[in-house]
Design a protein around this nucleic acid. Sequence first.
DNA 1: TTGTGCAAAAATCTCGAGAAAAAGTATTGA
DNA 2: TCAATACTTTTTCTCGAGATTTTTGCACAA
Lengths: 243, 243
Amino acid sequence: MPKPKLTVVYGADAPAPEPKTLVESAYRNLRRDIIEGRLQPGEKLRVEHLKDHYGVGAGTLREALSLLVADALVVSQGQRGFRVAPMSLADFQDITRTRLMLECEALRQSIALGDDAWEGDLMAAFHRLSRAEEKLSDGEAREEWEERNRIFHEVLIAACPSRWIKHFLSILYHQAERYRRLSLYRKPIPRNVHEEHEALLKATLARDADQAAAILADHIGLTLKAMEQLPAEFFASNGASGG
Amino acid sequence: MPKPKLTVVYGADAPAPEPKTLVESAYRNLRRDIIEGRLQPGEKLRVEHLKDHYGVGAGTLREALSLLVADALVVSQGQRGFRVAPMSLADFQDITRTRLMLECEALRQSIALGDDAWEGDLMAAFHRLSRAEEKLSDGEAREEWEERNRIFHEVLIAACPSRWIKHFLSILYHQAERYRRLSLYRKPIPRNVHEEHEALLKATLARDADQAAAILADHIGLTLKAMEQLPAEFFASNGASGG
DNA sequence: TTGTGCAAAAATCTCGAGAAAAAGTATTGA
DNA sequence: TCAATACTTTTTCTCGAGATTTTTGCACAA
C-alpha cells in the first residue's frame, strides 16, 4: 500500500533520519539533551567533560556545538566557551508571537496554492488527530496526540512554497519545544481543541484565508496564555541573568 | 559630545567588531568572500585548499564553515563536504517576500512602542539619508547612500522588541546582500526613492501603521521587480541544479 | 560502443597533544 | 578585615597525522 507521504515541514532542514557522521550524532544527542532539559539553560558546556560523555573527540564536539549555535540552542561567548541558551518568559512570548505571524502567513500561502492532494493529506491528518483526541481522555495517549497534532499543523502549511518561512518555523519549533516541556508539569488548560481544529480545517478547505488565520492566531494565542500562568520561578533558576 | 547611539539592528547578532579567535577571523573572511562573489554559488569548498589560503588549521576552518551554515551561506552535504549555498531567482523572491513580511511586522511594533528618543533617531537618520540623496546624482557617493539607506531602515524597526524578528531579518539581510551585488552591474531603476522615504517617515511619525507598512511593502516590492529584470543567465551558471 | 567491476587517489572526517587565555586561589600589605 | 597582586589550575583554542568514505580512472566483457 502507498505510504502516506505527508510532507514534513518543520523537519525540512534535517531530512537525514540517521546520522552518518559522528558530528551529526553528537549534534543530535546534544540537541535532545538541551531540549529535554538535561542540560539546563545557562549551563556552561565544558568540552573536556562533554567529549567524555558523548564519546567523541574534542574537535568533533566543538563542531557539533557550532551547529547548535545555528539553532540558537547554544550561545558562543567569544573566548569563554559555549553555554546553553538561556530561557525566559519574555523569550517564549517572542518565540510564540513570531511563530504565530510566520505560521499565519504560511497558512495563507498554503490556502492560496494547495492542490487536491494537499486537501487529501489535510483531511487525513485531521482524521488521525480526531481519533487520538477521542483516546486523549484516558490520559495515556498523550504523546500520540502530541505527535498527530504536530503533523496536523505541519500539513496545514505544507503547500506553502517558501523555504525560508519553513526554515524559520523549524527553528522556532525546536525552541518552543523546550518551553513546552515546562508546561507538561502543569495540567493543561481545559479548552476545546477539537472544535478549534475542526473550525480551522473547515475554514482552510473553504479557502477562507482570513478566517483560517484568525482561528490559528487564537489557537496559538491560547498556548501563550497557558505559559503565562506558569510561576516565574520556572525561569528564575535558569541563569538568565547575564553575568 | 554624545554619540548618536543608533541601535544597530541587522548586525545585532554579531556585535563583535574585531574577531578575537582564529575561528571568527576565518568565519568573517569566508563570509565576505561568499557575499562578494569570490567564492561562487554552488562551488565546492575543499578544506585542504582553503586552510592554505586563509592560513588556519583544518579543524579551525571546519568550525568556521559550520558557523556559516547557521547563516545559510554554506550548505553541508553529510559526508560530502561543504558547498557555497546556491542562488536562484526563486530564492531571491522568497528572501525578499519573507523579509518584507518580517520588516512590516517589525515596523508595526516599532510604531506601536517607539518613544521620543526613537523618533529623534529616525528623523536624524532620514536627514542624513536626504543629504546623501542630494549628492547621489554625482554617482560617486553611492556607497555612502547605501550605508545611510541601510541605517534608515534599521532605525525604522529599532523600537521593535522582538529579538527573533531581528535575528531572522539579520540572516535575510546578509542573504540579500549577495543578490544586491548582482544588481549593481545594472543601472538602477529610475524611481523616486526620496519621496518614498519621506512618505514612509511621515506615516511612521503619524503612527499610521497600516499606511507605513503599505509604503514599506511597495518600497521593497520595487526591489523585487528590479531583480526580476535581470537576465536568467545570472543564476544559470551557479550550479543551482541539484546534483 | 556501452555497461560493470575493481583499484587507485583524493577528500573528508576524527582524534589526541600542545599553546594560549581565563578563572580561581593564596599571599601580602595597609 | 579588605583590597590588590601574583601564581596555580582549569578550560579553551589550535594544529597536524591517521582512518574511513567518496570519487575518479581504467580495464574487461557483452
